[in-house]
Amino acid sequence: MKPTASDIQFYKTLIFFNALIPLLIMLWDFAHGQIGVNPVELSIRTFGVLTLIFLLLTLCVTPMRKLFGWGFLIKYRRMLGLFAFFYGCLHLLTYMGFDRSWSISGTVADVIKRPFIAVGMVSFLLLIPLAVTSADKMLRRIGAKRWLKLHKLIYLIAIGGVVHFYMIVKSDVFWPVVFAVALSVLFGYRIYSAYQKARG
């Protein structure tokens, strides 16, 4: 089953609009006064979780390609990664706007003072070079080898994101642990396949 160019375009559009649905639901709820008692916390948390979800979806592409032979999935990986960056931006902006009242110095002070904010901020900053170099033109400019090396940063970013989530929770670590387990499975696959490859 090899999708044609127009299939791929169709699925890209489908993924694009689906990935925006959480944001649209939130805007709809907000416009209708249905966003709950603490919209500040809800929006910051939701954008954070969406960032993690899209990071994990991005990391799912390689194992799925190899395990199921779905090579075409690579066509959608960039979009998934860029959605991780998009929701990461919204997460940062809602935090800075609502929690820090747009104060740059307040944000910097917060990063210095609170380890979990620092972990989140570093992860976000590491996402920026990946987003910037996501275009084909950039890939050609820096060379495929270096590009691949650079984009390995996603492993560090995903770990940082999950740790950041784990650190904010007061006692019920269920969801951070779910993300940690999912991430471990995705890493486990890579370690296993690297081991198999090394063995020949």
Binding site: D110, R114, P115, M167
Partner: peptide, 19 residues
């Protein structure tokens, strides 16, 4: 006196958008 993981200097009053 801050919580080890977050500041206690300000608070978000439910229903308000700034601290």
């Amino acid at each position: 006196v801050d919580h080890p993981r977050w500041s206690q200097a300000d608070e978000q009053r439910i229903g308000e958008f700034s601290r």
